[in-house]
């Protein structure tokens, strides 16, 4: 198999409040023989908030981010759903609208760059599924996740809006997504079927409307619990933060006692392919309830 190489857009969260995402991504890529070239020139994607304040600025900054992947002749992979949403949104807009591309390139010319549209922008999860292949991943499993009920939590921005993300996630149906379920199956875990798996954790209003965010996170965790989950897994560090760090307040918001470990996707893959839990930063996860027994 040809060695896979990607430009990694790590985002801000992996380098700050979720160090375990950075560690586990690097460890998994290393073990699978995938080369991730960190985009050291990249800025923050601005999330939806910069777009709310100044949509054009958000577009130009993200076009610049893509430029650096293009200059390395590499496809870009993201490890945060919101980064994925923003950068793929910009790419889709620039690729379909020649007038906008012209205007953005006029601004990029000021710093000697040009958006060409040659690099694709995918979440690492879908790059793994599409390029590495689930069959190949299954062959790497040395510690099958047998008898573990794993609730997949997709996170909004990897699957919606469909008209944009479907171009980067193999046409995942946002009403009935299967990618993460299939990944869990490849690791020989049991995916939990529950209604909240493709719903919202409310992270984007954590600051201005904490009650809304807590309640949404709580409802999702409660639904996963009620359907027999031993743990939750998500490809999005923002969902992970809400479900793990804020699990206490989220439980309170729905008047439930919830104790559910929430793993990053790369942590879960890492466990199955035999990476040491320490190298996956598992000690950073706040909710450790039952985790040791589950993974032993």
């Amino acid at each position: 198999m040809k060695r896979l190489r990607y430009a990694l857009y790590a985002g801000c969260t992996a380098k700050q409040s979720t160090p375990e995402l950075w560690k586990s991504t690097m460890a998994v890529a290393d073990k699978l023989g995938i080369e991730l070239v960190d985009l050291k020139e990249a800025t923050c994607c601005g999330a939806s908030h910069l777009r709310d304040f100044d949509a054009f600025l958000s577009m130009v900054l993200n076009a610049r981010n893509i430029c650096y992947a293009e200059m390395k002749n590499l496809d870009m992979v993201t490890i945060c759903n919101t980064c994925q949403n923003n950068i793929a949104f910009v790419k889709a807009k620039l690729d379909e609208d020649a007038q906008l591309r012209l205007e953005v390139n006029e601004h990029l010319a000021e710093i000697g760059l040009k958006y060409r549209g040659t690099s694709s922008v995918r979440h690492f999860m879908y790059a793994l599924i599409e390029d590495y292949g689930l069959d190949n991943l299954a062959k790497k499993v040395v510690k099958p996740l047998k008898n573990i009920n794993i609730a997949p939590f997709y996170g909004c921005h990897n699957i919606r809006p469909f008209h944009i993300q479907s171009g980067f996630n193999m046409g995942e149906n946002s009403f009935h997504p299967t990618g993460l379920d299939n990944l869990i199956l490849a690791l020989q875990g049991k995916p939990v079927e529950y209604a909240y798996k493709n719903r919202c954790c409310g992270f984007h209003v954590d600051l201005q409307a904490p009650k809304t965010a807590d309640k949404l996170t709580g409802l999702a965790l409660a639904d996963a619990t009620d359907n027999g989950a031993d743990m939750v897994v998500t490809p999005c560090p923002l969902c992970q933060l809400n479900m793990d760090v804020k699990q206490k307040s989220a439980s309170k918001a729905v008047a439930r006692e919830i104790k559910l470990p929430v793993l990053h996707l790369t942590q879960l893959i890492g466990l199955a392919i035999g990476i040491n839990p320490k190298d996956l930063g598992l000690e950073h996860n706040l909710v450790q309830y039952g985790l040791k027994e589950i993974i032993s």
């Binding site: 700050q16 050291k40 610049r64 601004h107 990029l108 000021e110």
Partner: peptide
């Protein structure tokens, strides 16, 4: 106090871009 990552390379480029592309 905070695990600050290092600033991106070419910070001057970013500042310049923000200067010319800000609409609001």
């Amino acid at each position: 106090p905070w695990n600050m990552p290092s600033k991106p390379k070419k910070m001057n480029e970013i500042k310049q871009l923000i200067k010319v592309a800000s609409k609001i």
